[in-house]
């Protein structure tokens, strides 16, 4: 085990539950959460807000040359998802063939293993997305 655990541990609510933040002054929703609103800055008032995880694909890529620790998953899809609540979030789209992925398709949240600190270290769980059934 090579990594300290606190860096992962302190993000657990955000990575497990998509807990974001909101500026009550301007109404903007942030994910990942911010402690300072980039618009209102010190005049802003930040509170916590749970996000639905429902959104649409804003852009995507099919990674063939995977990041360290993701080699077994190639090809994998990384996308920017435009969440219902406004923010964009980066994450994997899983449980599909990469050629099913298109800009604009709806997705929903899933809970998965993201990576791990080697075979003996902590397992990093968190959010990913999968294609949702189109609502007609």
């Amino acid at each position: 085990m090579t990594e300290g655990v606190a860096r992962f541990w302190r993000e657990i609510p955000h990575r497990y539950r998509l807990l974001g933040s909101k500026c009550d002054s301007c109404g903007r929703v942030f994910f990942p959460p911010r402690v300072l609103c980039p618009e209102c800055r010190r005049k802003g008032n930040i509170s916590r807000v749970a996000l639905s995880g429902k959104g649409k694909i804003y852009s995507y890529t099919i990674v063939k040359d995977g990041a360290n620790g993701f080699e077994r998953q190639v090809p994998y899809v990384i996308a920017l998802i435009k969440l219902e609540e406004g923010p964009l979030v980066a994450g994997q789209i899983v449980d599909c063939s990469p050629d099913e992925v298109e800009v604009g398709k709806p997705v929903e949240l899933v809970f998965r293993r993201v990576s791990e600190d080697g075979e003996e270290g902590i397992i990093y769980y968190g959010y990913k997305f999968r294609l949702a059934e189109e609502e007609n």
Partner: peptide, 12 residues
Amino acid sequence: GIDEDTVTISVE
């Protein structure tokens, strides 16, 4: 799936 285990299945 490659990123699934008893924890992720339990959560879902």
